[in-house]
Design a protein around this nucleic acid. Structure first.
Ligand code: FES
Ligand code: FES
Lengths: 144, 144
DNA sequence: CCAAAACAGGATAATTTTGTCCTGTTTAAA
DNA sequence: TTTAAACAGGACAAAATTATCCTGTTTTGG
C-alpha cells in the first residue's frame, strides 16, 4: 500500500508527536530503535519530512526532532503520505492506465475509485495527534 | 496499490476474457498491443497466471490464451492479485508492522483495517466476467 | 575553547522490481 | 514434411527502492 519509506516516516512522526506532547525531543537514534526502523534510511526520510514542514529538527547537543502542538493537530496523515510517496496513490488508476478518467474508465474504475476515495477521506480525516494519543496511553504500538 | 506486474496481469486477463466470450484466442503479441504493456514482461506474468489456473495457454499455430466461460464467471479479481502480488495486500499492517494484529494494533489499525477489508470484499466480489462485459460493449477501456 | 551529541547530505551498495533477449518446444497448416 | 506461429523458460540487463557509510556542520555543556 504505502512504500517502506512512507511507513517509516509515519511511524517516526507518530513517535515524535508522543514525545512532543510531553515536551521532549527525540533523536534519530531513539526513533530508529523505538520504531524498529533502519537508522540511516529513516534519517533520509526525516529529512524529507523536515523539508515538507511536517516535523522540525534541531541540531546540536540536546537536539532531535519535534512537532508543535498546533502542527500535530492540523497535519493530516495524507500530507505525510503525499510528502513521501506523492499524490499518485490518491489519483492513480487501479489497473495502471496512464490516468484515471471517469470519461474513459478502465473496467475497475467505479469500484476502485470508490475505495481509493474512502482511503483518501480517511487519511485526510486523521491527524498526527489522533494517532499519537493511543500510543501515549499504551493502547497502540509501533513495533511487532 | 498493485504492482505493475499485477496491473498487466489483470488487464491481460480481462482482454483474454473478452475474446473468449466470442470464442477467440488471443496471442501475447495482441495482448501486449491492446493493453499497452511490455510484451516479454507480460509473457512472464501470463506464465504465472497459467500456473495459477487463472487462464489457459495453447501452444503452436493458432495458439494463444483463453479462459473458459465458467472460469471467467467464477474467478475473482482477488485471485489474480493473490497469484501475482500474494496475499500480503489483504493482511499487511498499514504502517508496516510485522503483522497486523487487533490485539496489539498500530495507531492506524482500526481505520486502515476497515478500508483494507472493503478492498478485499470488492476484489472478492468482482469476477473476470464482470470486468469484461463493459469492455466488450465499448463502455470501458484498457488503454489511455 | 573543546569535546561530544546530533542532524544534513553526498556517495555508494544491496536488493527488488521491471524489462529484454534468446533458445527451445509445440502445433497446425501448406 | 517443412515451415511458421506461438508459448515456455533461462539468462541477463536496467531501473527503482531500500539501506549503509562517511564527512561536514551545528550546538551545548564542561
Ligand atoms: S480509470 Fe482505472 S481506476 Fe479510474
Ligand atoms: S496493526 Fe497496523 S493495520 Fe493492523
Amino acid at each position: 500500500m504505502f512504500s517502506r519509506a512512507c511507513e517509516y516516516g509515519i511511524r517516526a512522526t507518530i513517535l515524535i508527536a508522543t514525545h512532543s506532547i510531553v515536551g521532549e525531543r527525540v533523536s534519530l537514534k531513539d526513533i530508529a530503535r523505538k520504531t524498529d526502523s533502519p537508522l540511516a534510511f529513516t534519517g533520509k526520510v526525516l529529512q524529507q519530512l523536515v523539508k515538507g514542514g511536517i516535523v522540525t529538527s534541531v541540531q546540536g547537543v540536546n537536539g532531535g526532532f519535534e512537532i508543535g502542538r498546533k502542527q500535530m493537530e492540523e497535519t493530516r496523515l495524507s500530507q505525510i503520505v503525499a510528502a513521501i510517496d506523492g499524490e499518485q496513490i490518491f489519483r492513480a488508476c487501479g489497473l495502471g492506465l496512464q490516468e484515471c478518467n471517469a470519461k474513459k474508465p478502465c473496467p475497475l474504475h467505479d469500484k476502485f475509485a470508490s475505495i481509493r476515495n474512502d482511503l483518501k477521506t480517511m487519511l485526510e480525516g486523521t491527524s498526527i495527534l489522533d494517532l499519537s494519543t493511543g500510543l501515549k496511553d499504551g493502547l497502540t504500538f509501533l513495533q511487532r
